Simulated assay, not measured.
Amino acid sequence: MKKTNYFEIIRRFAAIAAMSIGLGSGSAAYAQAYSWVMGPNGEGLTRLGSLGGDETVTFARAINDARQIVGWSSTAAGKTHAFLTGPNGASMTDLGTLGGENSYAYGINNAGQVVGTSDAEFCCVNRAFITGPNGTGMTAFLPTAGAQRDPYSVGLGINNTGRVVGYSTDNIRSHLLITGPNGMNRLDTGFQEGVASAINDAGQAVGTLSPLEEFTHHAFITEPNTATVTKLGTLGGSESHATDVNASGQVVGWSRTAGGEFHAFITGPDGAGMTDLGTLGGTVSMATGINDAGQVVGYSTKAEGAEHYAFITGPGGTGMTDLNSLVTLPDRLTLSEAQGINNSGQIISLSGIAPIPEPATYALILAGLGLVGFMARCRTRATINQ
């Protein structure tokens, strides 16, 4: 009889959760962090503000071709709310919540429709949300279309027809979430395990498959406007993760190499092939975004130390440049993680001053803390109700 490895199940759930709330915002491990927007050569470097609270709790997550930025920030009341800015990070707007205390924005299209997740008005439940153009209104959604209905959901990406990707979860298994236009009509069955992280205007979604019984991760791309997935392979190692896709279907993310390192990768059109982007001299690099010219952004370690440094490549993923070589930051800050790039070459990045753990370790820390917090809240509520 096969024994159930509960530790491995928890580890796998933690890694999947970190795909959306951890590895893309690793600066939670920093003693101090800020968010910035800049041009492709570092020009116009601007630090984002906050929603009235601490600016070190502002995390930029996506930028569109209208130069609007979304993410989350601290309010004057000490809560965390999703935000939308005007062009170039100006005039940050609080998008509110779905009735709970906190919300987080992860994706935006060129019309300004925003997706993310928010606390619901009742305890311990988070719902994916979608807004109208320019962030107007916030509507909860989890299209079922015959799929199982998980209590928690997150919208991670949205294309210009309003097709949304993300995941839903029952706290043990995470299931792909891929919708039709304007977040309607779930295309997937709701039972395919993993996370869909981005989608292009052709309807090609990318992300990571994570079947619990396999104990590994596979980057994937879908056929246009379907949930039919094709695995992308690896850089010679045991796992890969896809984070973004451009108009031609070039996919970026990271993979374990044959030598056991984590390296950023780029594929050819429609996910064909996988090319190692290398590192800035260290053993870890991760690609977080790509534009239609094939410029890739992300972060990498160097030959010494565990710190991460934001990078940008040339068109087609050629070369890897430390963004810190293009700018001068105040207060000895370092651009640590580039989070996204638009078709004008504008980049959003986080900065920090403390080391970050290795990817797998950090995923466990962040998602594990979230899971512990969730269990504690629910246990407290159960005690009160007794």
Rank of each mutant, 00 (worst) to 15 (best):
residue 3 K to L: 15
residue 3 K to S: 14
residue 18 A to T: 07
residue 22 G to T: 06
residue 23 L to G: 01
residue 23 L to F: 02
residue 29 A to I: 08
residue 31 A to Y: 10
residue 33 A to E: 04
residue 40 P to M: 13
residue 41 N to H: 14
residue 45 L to E: 09
residue 45 L to D: 10
residue 46 T to S: 12
residue 47 R to F: 04
residue 47 R to D: 03
residue 49 G to L: 04
residue 51 L to A: 03
residue 53 G to P: 13
residue 53 G to L: 12
residue 56 T to D: 13
residue 59 F to I: 15
residue 61 R to S: 11
residue 69 I to A: 01
residue 72 W to A: 06
residue 76 A to R: 09
residue 83 F to R: 06
residue 84 L to G: 07
residue 86 G to D: 13
residue 87 P to T: 11
residue 89 G to T: 05
residue 95 L to R: 01
residue 100 G to K: 07
residue 104 Y to K: 00
residue 105 A to V: 13
residue 114 V to R: 01
residue 120 A to T: 10
residue 128 A to K: 00
residue 149 R to L: 15
residue 149 R to E: 15
residue 151 P to D: 14
residue 153 S to A: 15
residue 157 G to E: 12
residue 157 G to R: 06
residue 160 N to Q: 06
residue 166 G to V: 02
residue 166 G to W: 00
residue 188 D to A: 15
residue 196 A to D: 05
residue 201 D to V: 13
residue 205 A to K: 07
residue 209 L to M: 12
residue 210 S to M: 14
residue 214 E to M: 13
residue 217 H to A: 04
residue 218 H to A: 07
residue 218 H to Y: 14
residue 221 I to E: 00
residue 222 T to S: 15
residue 226 T to N: 03
residue 231 K to H: 15
residue 236 G to T: 09
residue 246 N to Y: 07
residue 251 V to K: 00
residue 254 W to F: 15
residue 257 T to G: 01
residue 258 A to R: 05
residue 262 F to R: 08
residue 271 G to D: 10
residue 272 A to H: 12
residue 281 G to T: 06
residue 291 N to W: 02
residue 291 N to H: 03
residue 293 A to I: 06
residue 304 E to I: 12
residue 304 E to W: 04
residue 304 E to T: 11
residue 311 F to C: 06
residue 311 F to N: 02
residue 314 G to H: 02
residue 314 G to E: 03
residue 317 G to L: 05
residue 321 T to L: 14
residue 325 S to M: 06
residue 330 P to T: 05
residue 331 D to K: 04
residue 334 T to H: 06
residue 335 L to I: 07
residue 338 A to R: 03
residue 340 G to T: 05
residue 341 I to H: 03
residue 341 I to L: 11
residue 343 N to K: 09
residue 355 P to I: 12
residue 360 A to F: 15
residue 364 L to Q: 15
residue 367 A to N: 05
residue 370 G to D: 12
residue 372 V to Y: 08
residue 374 F to T: 11
residue 375 M to R: 14
residue 379 R to E: 13
residue 384 I to S: 11
residue 386 Q to H: 09
